[in-house]
């Protein structure tokens, strides 16, 4: 279990052709950092682990921000660990694009 390094996993995503486009997209985001904004104004940042048809999202090593994490006013995040966000509480989902990050 321990050798399941996220780096490896990101690239050996199942590329078999019978998977629908949406599934492939979702699969490509697995193990990436996601930032999820919730209906009550909190933002969670964590590793995308799982989702289903109702858009429930499970994030690993999840951290909770009460203020907008963009303005880095030094708000200490609260560590939640493994957290599930119910689909109907999700306002916005962003992912951490590391491939397009060569701009510096």
């Amino acid at each position: 279990m321990a050798e399941g390094k996220p780096e490896n996993m990101r690239f050996d995503a199942d590329t078999s052709t019978q998977e629908s486009e949406g599934r492939q997209k979702l699969r490509s985001w697995l193990n990436m950092s996601l930032r999820v904004s919730m209906t009550d104004g909190r933002t969670l940042i964590g590793v995308f682990l799982c989702t289903d048809r109702d858009k429930n999202v499970i994030l690993g090593s999840c951290q909770e921000y009460i203020q907008d994490p963009d303005d880095t006013s030094g708000e200490d995040p609260r560590v939640l660990g493994l957290a599930m966000v119910p689909g109907h509480h999700i306002l916005k989902i962003e992912y951490d694009d590391i491939t397009a990050n060569q701009i510096m």
């Binding site: 985001w29 930032r35 989702t51 858009k55 306002l91 989902i93 962003e94 951490d96 590391i98």
Partner: peptide
């Protein structure tokens, strides 16, 4: 981070 909005795509 280099956040990219994927809300619609994701949903």
């Amino acid at each position: 981070y280099n956040w990219k909005d994927i809300t619609q795509d994701f949903l």
